[in-house]
Each structure stands twice: as structure tokens, then as C-alpha cells.
Design a protein around this nucleic acid. Structure first.
Length: 291
DNA sequence: ATTTGGTGTTGTG
DNA sequence: CACAACACCAAAT
């Protein structure tokens, strides 16, 4: 648990806060019907109640209660409502001119098809490193053209598995651990204070045509907003392909930056997440406080 | 509430 | 080339 990432402001925690926080979230969502009190939760995970309240609020900018509110189906439905089929273009304009910015991270991306990188990019070198993040240990992977992968692990014990998951996606690439190289990306990505235009974050998307189209649509979803799989399907011109869209979203290699966590089912249910539903909830709750 | 049938794309053999 | 798997969805039990 080395905490080499000291973030510049206090909205983001260091180190193992996420462990505590994810425990709370898991508990909160599992027996939310019982409306467990803060005391009860604190007792269950063996922490002092006021300390817990403080940790959680520092992490999310939201009290546990408000957090729970922010990830209910009702709330999700409300957000979906002004999704407005015609296009998110309206909110696009809005996002650029107002503080509720779109493209929160100011990403520029380029796409690379599997064929392209197989022929042209054999021996493509990918450098990687783990860093602390608000959502646990984050694995960042970069090429000389930009960020190509972002994955998560609950703790250090889970790191090898995350690494395997990611390296398996690009057999043939050469992998080198290089945390010095990945560190600046980690800082930039997880500290909203760094989300400014200027030097946009360079991302390289490696995937099939269809996947790229889906991922590009995901980038259009503003911070704090949600989108259904079927709506995404409509936007890429394959209105009946919502299921295929779901699969593509699930294979997004640059999670969080390409906001796959903002895609949910039409009912408002969160449905699924490659790195665990609890983490998806955590991201949405965290974002809810930052709109 | 649960089941069922219709989906588009991808990975496997 | 076929076939199963999938972070879905709507309509019919």
C-alpha cells in the first residue's frame, strides 16, 4: 500500500480508503431494505461510526445516505428521462460552455483495429503500472501513442489477476513494468482538478470496428449522466443491437476514462460491470457529487 | 415475477 | 463456416 500518489486536493482519498468504502457500499446495497443505520454498518465492518462517516464523505463528497440515494433505480430513471432521443447534442453544447463539462477528461482518441496493430504493431510495447485510485488499485497501460488500458483490483493481492486479464487481451505485445511512466496518467485521470482542456489526455482505442463505435459513443456521455444500452445501440445506427452493445461495452479496455460505468439497463438497473458491480456503484455515486 | 423468443457481434473450432 | 456466449429488451405468461 505505498501511497505514492498524493493528490493535490482533498476530494480524492489516498490508499486504502476504497477498501472501507466498498465494504460500506456492498453492505448498503445488499440490505438496503433494512435501512441499516450508520452505527450498525460501522459495527459490522469494525469501525467507529463517526470515523466511518468522515472517511466516506471525504471519499465521495456524499454521506452514505445521500450516496445510496444517488444509485437507486428511481434516481437512475430520473437521469435517463431527459436522455431525449433526438440527441445528446443539446447537452453537448451545454457541457462545453458550463462547468458541468462534457468529455470530462478532455480526451482525444485514435482507434486501432486488431488487424492494424497486428500487422503494423507486432512487438507493440506496452508499459504498465499499478497506482492508488479512488476505486482501489488501478492498473494503467500505455503505449507511446497514449493510454490503452485501465483496470482495477481491490487490493494488492488481486493485482496479478487484473494484470493477466489485461495482458491477455493483446497477445503478442511486449509488456514492461514502468510505474514512472504511468504515474502522471494516474494523477491526471483521478484528480478532477486536472480535468481541463489544454493538453488533452491521449487515448488509443484498440478494438474491432463495432467496439470502437460503441466506445466513442460512451465518450459522449457527460459526467453525472446515464445512458441505456439500447439508446447507445440507436446512436450507432443499430437500434436492435442493444445486446451486442452490452457485450462491446463490457470489453472496453480503458474503463473509467471511457465511461462504461454510465451505461445501464433500461429499467434503471445497473446490470453488470467487468470490474464488479460495487465498483460501478462507487463510480456513479462518486460522480454524482461532482456534477 | 418469470419465461421466452428475437436480437448483432465476437471468439472458438 | 457454424455455433455458442453475451454487462439486453419487450412481450407474453
Amino acid at each position: 500500500m505505498n501511497m505514492e500518489i498524493r493528490l493535490t486536493n482533498d476530494i480524492t482519498p489516498v490508499g486504502n480508503d476504497y477498501r472501507t468504502v466498498s465494504d460500506v457500499i456492498a453492505l448498503l446495497t445488499r440490505d438496503y431494505q433494512a435501512q441499516p443505520s450508520l452505527d450498525a454498518i460501522a459495527r459490522k465492518i469494525g469501525q467507529d461510526a463517526t470515523e466511518l462517516q468522515k472517511t466516506f464523505t471525504r471519499w465521495a463528497g456524499l454521506s452514505p445516505k445521500a450516496f445510496l440515494q444517488a444509485v437507486t433505480i428511481d434516481h437512475a430513471k430520473r437521469l435517463l428521462k431527459d436522455e431525449k432521443l433526438p440527441l445528446l447534442e443539446a447537452s453537448y453544447e451545454l457541457g462545453l460552455s458550463s462547468p458541468g463539462r462534457l468529455h470530462d477528461l478532455f480526451v482525444t482518441h485514435e482507434a486501432m483495429s486488431p488487424g492494424e496493430w497486428k500487422t503494423g504493431g507486432v512487438g507493440l510495447e506496452i508499459r504498465h503500472g499499478f497506482h492508488d485510485s479512488p476505486f482501489g488499485r488501478a492498473l494503467l497501460m500505455i503505449t507511446d501513442r497514449g493510454l490503452c488500458g485501465l483496470a482495477f483490483a481491490d487490493d494488492e493481492a488481486a493485482e496479478p489477476e487484473a494484470l493477466r486479464d489485461m495482458t491477455g487481451r493483446w497477445p503478442g505485445a511486449r509488456f514492461v513494468e514502468d510505474r514512472e511512466a504511468t504515474r502522471p496518467y494516474a494523477v491526471r485521470i483521478f484528480d478532477p482538478a486536472c480535468w481541463k482542456p489544454g493538453e488533452p489526455l491521449r487515448v488509443v482505442l484498440i478494438g474491432t470496428d463495432f467496439q470502437i463505435r460503441v466506445w466513442e459513443q460512451l465518450l459522449e456521455i457527460p459526467l453525472g449522466r446515464l445512458c441505456t444500452y439500447s439508446h447507445l445501440a440507436g446512436r450507432i445506427g443499430a437500434p436492435k443491437a442493444s445486446r451486442a452493445v452490452g457485450a462491446a461495452v463490457g470489453r472496453n479496455p480503458v474503463s473509467f476514462v471511457v465511461p462504461c460505468h454510465r451505461a445501464i439497463g433500461k429499467s434503471g438497473a445497473l446490470t453488470g460491470y467487468h470490474w464488479g458491480l460495487t465498483r460501478k456503484r462507487a463510480m456513479l455515486g462518486w460522480e454524482a457529487a461532482k456534477v
